[in-house]
């Protein structure tokens, strides 16, 4: 099993997301992440789906997606050149002023951003590719991570 990244252009209509997620659950395919949003054409949404699969399952996933009436195009980005980004918010324990300052320092050095400072915690925002996100999480882990939320990957083919 490895992770594959697929993009699907779909009609922007109600029920489409349910159809797609239903397809995955009905066939026992596992979605690792799914991000949806409108495109430059308001009648079309783009879904970026990261799936845990082997080559054979991936092939079926693509064909089954294509078979759905409201799916316009399916791209398999995995093999080619693409840029991908994900946004993450990490809430870290920060009980004292000392620790808070330390976290601020550490975060500054990475290019991530502090978006909220509370009495007992600090929330950090980062966006980037998987590598960057992972690095931040590892950096913050020693302080004690309280909560993480991620948007799931979005990706575009590069025309390089």
């Amino acid at each position: 099993m490895s992770k594959f990244i697929i993009a699907a252009l779909v009609e922007n209509k109600f029920g489409v997301l349910a159809r797609i997620s239903g397809l995955f659950s009905a066939r026992g395919f596992n979605i690792s992440s799914l991000a949806v949003g409108e495109t430059e054409d308001p009648e079309v949404s783009r879904m970026t789906i990261v799936v845990d699969a082997d080559e054979k399952i991936l092939e079926q996933v693509k064909k089954q997606l294509n078979k759905l009436i409201e799916v316009i195009t399916v791209y398999d980005l995995t093999g080619g050149e693409y840029v991908d980004r994900e946004l993450i918010l990490v809430k870290v324990k920060a009980a004292s002023t000392d620790i808070r300052e330390k976290i601020v320092q550490v975060v500054d050095s990475t290019g991530a951003e502090i978006v909220d400072i509370g009495k007992k915690s600090v929330t950090v925002e980062e966006s980037g590719d998987e590598h960057r996100i992972k690095a931040l999480v590892e950096l913050l882990r020693p302080y004690g991570i309280l909560e993480i939320v991620r948007t799931g990957k979005i990706a575009l083919q590069s025309d390089a």
Binding site: K56, E59, Q60, K63, Q64, N66, K67
Partner: peptide, 8 residues
């Protein structure tokens, strides 16, 4: 006629 049948 159904590509998803082929190779399934």
């Amino acid at each position: 006629v159904d590509p998803s049948s082929v190779g399934k």
